[in-house]
Design a protein around this nucleic acid. Structure first.
Lengths: 330, 330
DNA sequence: TCGTTTTATGAAATCAGTTTCATATTTATC
DNA sequence: GATAAATATGAAACTGATTTCATAAAACGA
């Protein structure tokens, strides 16, 4: 591996000058500049990132925390983030928090030790103060999830509108007995709370009270969806529609409904969230709310890179809009 | 940020001794050792990884190349790899090759610059010689994909047996006119070739010739599956069963069959590959070949860490076995 | 023409660790 | 009790870059 000293020696210049050429400093003569480029080329020289890092330089690496990569929403998000990062010559260090505080902390520490230049968090486990205390080591951007009363920059979709849109759609179709699934640990803040508000608001428009026995919390997976369907089937007083928190839950509901001999949407209308590929594949095809994942990825990386370059942000809170995709499950 | 000098100063020892304590060198007195630990604790000291890296130390980071993370097979694989890596105090730098040679090369170079200690490749784009030339910078392990005539360590499933098992199943059920999908760019080597051989072998057992107009190459996605189904529907001489290269292709086939008013498995039996969650969700549920992803992840990381520690390997080629999961599509 | 900028370069310090070399004690061996 | 080996520690060199400080030459202004 060639080092900067090799380049210096080969050109007869000092390391300082070579370094200046590499970093595009002014006041370098054209001849020397070209001499250095030529030598770098010939030696196959690439600066050692660890050495640069040690001098407090940027690492060209951004960290991304997701709860679980196997959740398709997050794998598509990471895909989008990685593509944009690559276009900008950045690498992505991906990390799964598993929804655990200590794993999240472990990863936040990489910012402290300058392993990553900045961080994109797509979920939040620790308290606001804890996370904000790490901003002194590098920029942190929230993508998808957010915290109110925080001045961290955030890129997200309008969850309230999304939930409102979906619920309104059910109501417009004539359903009045609407069940509701939510992740819901963060009930007092963040995206789940916004969804709750949107759901509530749509029901208010129609003067309908929420039936709390039709509210299911802490639901995420296909298995959860199946279990919800079983619970509903056993109820004497059943809902006629359900707003689920994700396409996966919805898929579980559909699957179990089929096993129980129930018809969708006649016996139960189902609306999903995300518009994952699976939404189109299952039968009946799923009505769902499409999230603009690609745009979220692009906006997030663009914004983080702007922060890294100390460019001013036009806005610290970017809200992207969602879209209702009507298929056959409602 | 506290440095090693701070610890040295606080304990009244030299940096050398502190470093020795950190790295568990022998010949340190118990008192000094504890003194250092105490000071490190109090200062909240963590060694700077860039500095260690610069001295040629390990980075505690392994790189993982996948073609696309949105492919569920790979997101589950990365999940498994990351879990095991975390247990061993390693981070995973994930990278998508997008099946492009230049992206793969870019990532291989991280090994050269010691950004990662070792590499796990779950797909291969460049030639054998190119990839092997990077082993002088750190260990490279192949996981899932492999190259013959290469002495790179590999963790994989017995693809030949897998394809044989699936095809045999179709034949045993009475299907004789069997179509075949493959990724198939690497037709002369690697996992796709093994599958081809397994498929061939099963047909030979029943004295059946392959009908080449029923062979579809370069298929990967749901969309590809739909397209294959459309092609089949237009044939005068149709197959009665199809072996697909992945559950996604199979899902596409099923979906399009439904649109075309065809019945599965009566009009066309379909067998998938991987046993992804979607296999259970679609209708009819998919018969498929289950790959032991968790074990592959564990074996891969364990093996790579052993290589990093210069422990000898019992075997450089680990083959895990697959399992046929019979559902309703055959 | 002389003093002041501007341009161009290099020596040496610096980042935060690890490792080599030297050296001082102990402990073991004959 | 003398010699060899094992234990314990520190000073300084080293990793590969960037940056500061110093300095020389060229360009500029009066």
């Amino acid at each position: 591996m060639a080092t900067i000293s090799d380049v210096a020696e080969k050109t007869g210049l000092s390391k300082a000058t070579v370094s200046r050429v590499i970093n595009n400093h002014p006041y370098i003569s054209k001849e020397k500049r070209e001499l250095v480029y030529k030598a770098m080329e010939e030696l196959g020289y690439h600066p050692n990132p660890s050495a640069r890092r040690l001098r407090g330089q940027l690492t060209n690496t951004i960290g991304v925390i997701v709860p679980r990569i196997v959740n398709p929403f997050f794998s598509y998000l990471v895909d989008a983030l990685e593509q944009v990062a690559y276009e900008n010559n950045y690498q992505v260090l991906m990390f799964q928090s598993d929804e655990k505080k200590d794993k999240e902390l472990y990863f936040l520490n990489l910012l402290k030790t300058k392993q990553v230049d900045g961080l994109i968090m797509t979920s939040i486990e620790n308290d606001r103060e804890v996370i904000e205390s790490y901003t002194k080591f590098g920029p942190i951007l929230l993508c998808n999830e957010y915290m109110s009363q925080s001045d961290l920059p955030v890129v997200r979709v309008d969850q309230m509108k999304a939930a409102y849109l979906g619920t309104k759609h059910l109501l417009d179709r004539g359903y009045r007995r609407i069940a509701y699934c939510t992740g819901g640990l963060f009930v007092d803040d963040g995206k789940d709370k916004d969804r709750n508000v949107g759901f509530q608001k749509a029901l208010n428009d129609y003067d309908i009270q929420i039936n709390t026995s039709w509210v299911f919390i802490n639901k995420h997976t296909i298995e959860d969806g199946k279990q919800v369907m079983r619970q509903i089937a056993e109820m004497r007083d059943r809902p006629d529609a359900i707003f689920t928190g994700s396409d996966e839950i919805a898929a579980g509901v559909l699957r179990e409904a089929k096993s129980l001999g129930l018809n969708i949407p006649e016996d139960l209308a189902v609306i999903g969230f995300d518009d994952q590929p699976i939404a189109e594949m299952i039968d009946p095809a799923l009505t769902t709310i499409r999230q603009p994942i690609k745009e979220m990825g692009r906006e997030s990386v663009d914004t983080l890179l702007r922060l890294l370059k100390n460019h001013p942000l036009d806005q610290t809170d970017q809200e992207l809009s969602v879209e209702l995709v009507v298929r056959s499950s409602t």
